[in-house]
Write a protein that binds this DNA or RNA. Structure first.
Length: 813
RNA sequence: GCCGAAGUGGCGGAAUGGCAGACGCGGCGGUCUCAAACACCGCUGGGCUCAAACCCGUGUGGGUUCGAAUCCCACCUUCGGCACCA
């Protein structure tokens, strides 16, 4: 009797061996075709089931590629800068560096338990000076290219995190990580000009990304075609023209008033003395509102008249200029021409304040000579529009814009919702922005030769939440690199998304002291062939990294237009109760516990077996029994031999070989499709079939060996430890993970006989066993011989017969 | 409100125009055992049944088709994203 399978001893033993042998190291000089598989790296903390759920199938896919003969790069590292470390420092007085590196050390151990095929020789830690030196270098290159700039803007301030955030990190008016309500503050900050690539970021040619992510990015970038139009301001001493963005220049004759955002710079200069108290009061009131209150769509529209008028450049109409908080200073020009007849928001506002409503299109179903009850956006022909009257709606836009361009009062344009990426953070634990403020020279970049700008070692945190960097004179005060006069370092650090925007490049050449990545390494490994990670990063990391890559391409550092050719988003693994895992709910499944109970292989497989990977769903701990049964069965098949007989050409042998080759075919197909749950079900079926064959009597040795080798090889990516152990025991050699993926023989996988459904009028009434290659005439003869069919036909002739070989035969009466 | 995804047994799910419910969990019955565990075998959508046969059945209602979980139309529900973006 063979021993029972002991996952713990076996797993630890092979993990140690693989690591000692650097089995998964991707060598630069390996001549085989490369395959770069990447799964999003974790930030430092604790490794949870979500990480396993993301990483295990990524590992399976990487292992599969390796067995298909690729030189696979599958690296791992740590996104180690960021707030958690600093919050721990503030709350518990620990040093953020020590906290971070202790976490990383623990996570390395947890990741090892997974048995994943990471190439640890290429590990990167974004908080290492060797790494963030290059993060700073990238900043300088972007600055040089005009893609990094400093500007004052309305920024999102998170009071809980004591820092500003990028727009992408604000969700429903709240901070994406702390959930605090963000405040609007006018601050001077560093930005990356991601908008310079807006148009290109909308194109997804040459990459296979999920429709969902493409839609989210497209939506976020928010391209809209329209025009700028300029209205003169009828205020003595003000020559500025009021510039508006509109998608409907063809409604310009219906502009009965203007609305500018309360923060618009022109407001102070055009407001009349009589209106000033009301305007000031309104501005004060809106500035007190949170973003959430202000953006609530169902609240009544409010606004105040400035007392000033603008002149419509098309018809000379004198229209009042209002301020209202439904116009956002951050979009377009922060000012609109209001056309209440054709825009519901303007209509609501006009109604509330008794402003004029003039339709400038007629409509088949609306009598435009009567007061409107609602705005309508698209009409038939222009009316009330002077020389444009009668212009069909389809031509209106182009004609009005052409006229505006002729007259010098406007031009066609494309506007984006996307705004530049604010990367300054008023925090300590990040890569310092390598800039120096000199009283004489202004803003001066730190010379590349002086990189990295190191974070000071000993820092103290206090309850103010202010970054300690602002309080360390010996760090802040420096000599200006240009004039050597007194100057101060920039004390803000970079958004951690900056660190992760280029990490995939660094894995290609992780220890290069001269460059972020050498040309040779970039050419060898980049871009990423298969990227996997969560969809929650759709408009953050996944958008930033595309921008970053394009900028790097334009600097000549990398080639090609996209950083990741294929992207797969796994779903979210939930607690057994169907809710998000959380300590407060008490539904957390801790991976370390699962591993100590069942072993890594079983936990890996159970995570993949719960359902389609992209859908996520509840983790089912009781279902583990099925996985364990299957792995034990596989163990028994590999360690308890059948009685052998030389019987290569018998029907039983043929059946076993058929099962083996069908399994190879189906598992390979499922592997390509990332359909890991169905893949495991096929392997279970094969194991059950093998067991029945073994227990039924003597088995042909060759066919058995073929079946067993296939079972182990096909299981290897999923359950790497048990597969290695069995492979070793059957003398397969070391290692199963560098062995060749089995090929199937279509001839052996082919069925000789097939069962087809016999339908009458589309309902299954009987079954026929036919030769696999059975033609229609023979199938029909067999069908008409069925007693069931004879009874139902009742002597009549079938009107029609549909035969789908191998599937069914349908008789229509 | 707009956009996207989804809705199938007691549960996770399979099948993307051709036999609905693969595989697994759970449940029921059995073999083994003094007994239990493990393991193995059988059954397991509902109705009507001793059983067979038959009928019903993939969110709801319609449609296309010889044939629909799958395609089309309308609606309901759930989840995700966006949301005064001019």
């Amino acid at each position: 009797m063979a021993d029972r399978y002991d996952p713990h001893a076996t797993e630890a033993r092979w993990q140690a061996r693989w690591e000692a042998d650097r089995l998964y190291h991707a060598a630069d000089d390996d001549p085989r075709p490369r395959w770069y598989a990447l799964t999003m790296f974790p930030s430092s903390g604790d490794l949870h089931t979500g990480h396993w759920y993301a990483m295990v199938p990524s590992d399976v896919a990487a292992r599969y590629r390796r067995m298909r003969g690729h030189n696979v790069l599958f690296p791992m590292g740590f996104d180690a800068f960021g707030l958690p470390a600093e919050n721990a420092a503030i709350k518990r007085g620990v040093d953020p560096r020590e906290w971070t590196y202790a976490n990383i050390e623990r996570m390395r151990g947890q990741l090892r338990l997974m048995g994943a095929s990471f190439d640890w020789d290429r590990e990167v830690v974004t908080s290492d000076p060797e790494y963030y030196k290059w993060t700073q270098w990238w900043f300088l290159q972007l600055y040089r290219k005009g893609l990094a700039y400093r500007a004052e803007a309305a920024a999102n301030w998170c009071p809980g995190c004591h820092t500003v955030l990028a727009n992408e990190q604000v969700v429903d008016g709240r901070c994406e990580r702390s959930d605090d309500i963000v405040e609007r503050r006018f601050l001077t900050q560093w930005f990356f000009k991601i908008t310079a690539y807006a148009e290109e970021l909308l194109r997804f040619e040459g990459i296979e990304w999920p429709e969902r992510i493409r839609a989210m990015q497209t939506n976020w970038i928010g391209r809209s075609e329209g025009a700028f139009l300029e209205f003169a301001v009828d205020v003595p001493g003000v020559d500025d023209r009021l510039k508006v963005f509109t998608t409907r220049p063809d409604t310009v004759y219906g502009a009965t008033f203007m609305v500018v955002a309360p923060e618009h710079p022109l407001v102070a200069r055009i407001t009349t003395d009589a209106q000033r108290p009301a305007v000031d009061a309104y501005i004060a009131q809106t500035s007190r509102q949170t973003e959430i209150e202000r953006l609530s769509t169902d609240k009544e529209k409010t606004g105040v008249f400035t007392g000033a008028y603008a002149i419509n450049p098309f018809n000379g109409a004198r229209v009042p200029i209002w301020i209202a908080d439904y116009v956002l200073v951050t979009y377009g020009t922060g000012a609109i021409m209001a056309v209440p007849a054709h825009d519901q928001r303007d209509f609501d506002f006009a109604r509330a304040y008794g402003l004029e409503i003039i339709p400038v299109f007629d409509h088949d179903d609306v009598d435009v000579t009567q007061p409107l009850t609602a705005a309508f956006s698209h009409g038939r022909r222009m009316v009330n529009s002077g020389p444009f009257d009668g212009t069909p709606a389809s031509e209106a836009f182009a004609r009005v814009v052409a006229f505006a361009e002729e007259q010098g009062v406007g031009s066609a344009t494309v506007n984006y919702r996307l705004r530049d990426w604010l990367i300054s953070r008023q925090r300590y634990w990040g890569a310092p922005i390598p800039m120096i403020h000199c009283d004489a020279c202004g803003i001066v970049p730190v010379p590349e030769s002086e990189l990295p700008v190191l974070l000071p070692d000993t820092v103290t945190f206090d309850a103010s939440g202010k970054s300690p960097l602002t309080r360390i004179p010996e760090w802040i005060d420096v000599a200006c690199p240009q004039c050597a006069g007194p100057a101060r370092r920039e004390s803000d650090t970079m958004d951690t998304f900056m660190c992760s925007s280029w990490y995939q490049m660094r894995y290609a050449d992780p220890h290069n002291p001269e460059r972020p990545v050498s040309r040779e390494a970039a050419a060898k490994w980049l871009p990423v062939d298969q990227y996997t990670g969560g969809a929650e990063h759709a408009v953050m990391h996944l958008l930033y990294t595309r921008f970053f890559w394009k900028a790097a391409r334009d600097m000549g550092v990398v080639e090609g237009d996209e950083p990741m050719l294929r992207l797969f988003n796994q779903g979210v693994i939930l607690g057994p109760d169907g809710n998000r895992m959380s300590k407060s709910r008490g539904n957390v499944v801790a991976p370390d516990d699962q591993v100590s109970q069942w072993g890594s292989d079983a936990f890996r497989c159970q995570l993949m077996f719960v359902g389609p990977w992209d859908q996520g769903g509840p983790y089912n701990p009781t279902g583990m029994a099925g996985i364990v049964r299957w792995l034990n069965r596989l163990w028994s098949l590999g360690t308890e031999e059948p009685r052998y007989v030389d019987d290569l050409h018998s029907e039983g042998t043929r059946a076993l070989r058929r099962a083996t080759h069908k399994t190879i075919r189906d598992v390979t197909e499922a592997m390509e499709a990332f359909s890991f749950n169905t893949l495991i079900s096929r392997l279970m079926e094969h194991a059950t079939a093998m067991q029945r064959v073994r227990d039924a009597g003597p088995v042909d040795g060759q066919a058995w060996d073929e079946a067993l080798r296939a079972a182990i090889l096909l299981t290897a990516p999923l359950a790497p430890h048990i597969a290695e152990e069995l492979w070793d025991r059957i003398g397969g050699g070391y290692s199963v993970h560098t062995a060749e993926w089995p090929a199937f023989d279509p001839e052996l996988a082919r069925d000789d006989e097939v069962e087809v459904a016999l339908q009458v009028n589309g309902k299954v009434r009987d079954r026929l066993v036919l030769p696999a290659e059975c033609g229609e005439a023979d199938a029909r003869t067999a069908a008409l011989a069925s007693p069931k069919v004879i009874a139902l036909l009742d002597g009549k002739e079938p009107r029609r017969v549909i035969y789908v070989p191998g599937r069914l035969l349908n008789i229509v009466l």
